[in-house]
Nucleic acid binder design. Structure first.
Length: 207
DNA sequence: GACCAGGTCCTTG
DNA sequence: CAAGGACATGGT
């Protein structure tokens, strides 16, 4: 994948605040739709956690419409922003805390599941976490990694890279690019959980 | 018109 | 704990 993609410079956002906003908006949603929202949030000066924490649910949802699930996401975005500002004062201060506390705090927030937590840890807080998303699971499942838990996979990769931030960031980025371009969803084997056996193979070879 | 997208939460059995 | 449904817009 590295020979094909090289350094992708992820996450595609201008600021750490935008990483968090984008991570929530892209839940089960194409990045294309999220980009429209980000542009709009920027023009409305709503692209910071502080701004979102002070905005009304109505204002937020109207500005993130194109990302889908906008009511749910507006509520989650606001709640997450308020929590971070209340508890830590700012995202920068939050990120000074150790990984263990951060992971526990983030995971306790409604709307922050495993992938969103990992994305925030790695791309907003620069902690050595590997992001396991749907593409990662699908691609690795297709090349044989079936009987393995998500957390185990994460640990394997994190250990393999010895906490190398640059590599962890790019590795996830490459899985997403590869997934988007060469590993579409296959009917009757939705998601292909790593701990299940799926009887399909790569429909196209990696470039 | 069906199917899918860089998930997560809540409810059931 | 696994399985199923809800959340919703935009592109193919």
């Amino acid at each position: 994948m590295y020979e094909r993609y090289g350094d992708l410079h992820w996450w595609p956002a201008d600021t750490a605040d935008e990483v968090i906003i984008g991570a929530v908006l892209t839940q089960n949603t194409s990045w294309k739709n999220v980009e429209k929202c980000m542009e709009r949030l920027r023009s409305e000066k709503l692209n910071t956690l502080k701004a979102i924490s002070g905005a009304s649910l109505h204002t937020i949802s109207e500005n993130i419409r194109s990302s889908g699930f906008y009511n749910q996401k507006a509520q989650r975005l606001k709640m997450i922003s308020v929590s971070i500002v209340r508890v830590y004062g700012s995202l920068e201060r939050m990120c000074n805390k150790n990984s263990e506390e951060l992971e526990k705090f983030l995971s306790s927030l409604r709307g922050v599941g495993p992938e969103t937590m990992e994305s925030i840890m790695l791309y907003a807080c620069e902690k050595p976490f590997f992001v396991v998303d749907k593409y990662t699971v699908r691609i690795l499942g297709r090349v044989g990694f079936r009987d393995i838990e998500r957390g185990t996979l994460r640990s394997l990769v994190e250990a393999e890279f010895h906490g190398d931030l640059k590599k962890l960031k790019n590795y996830h980025a490459m899985f997403v690019e590869t997934g988007k371009n060469y590993c579409k969803k296959v009917p009757d084997c939705d998601g292909c959980p790593l701990n299940k056996v799926c009887s399909y193979s790569m429909e196209r070879r990696l470039p």
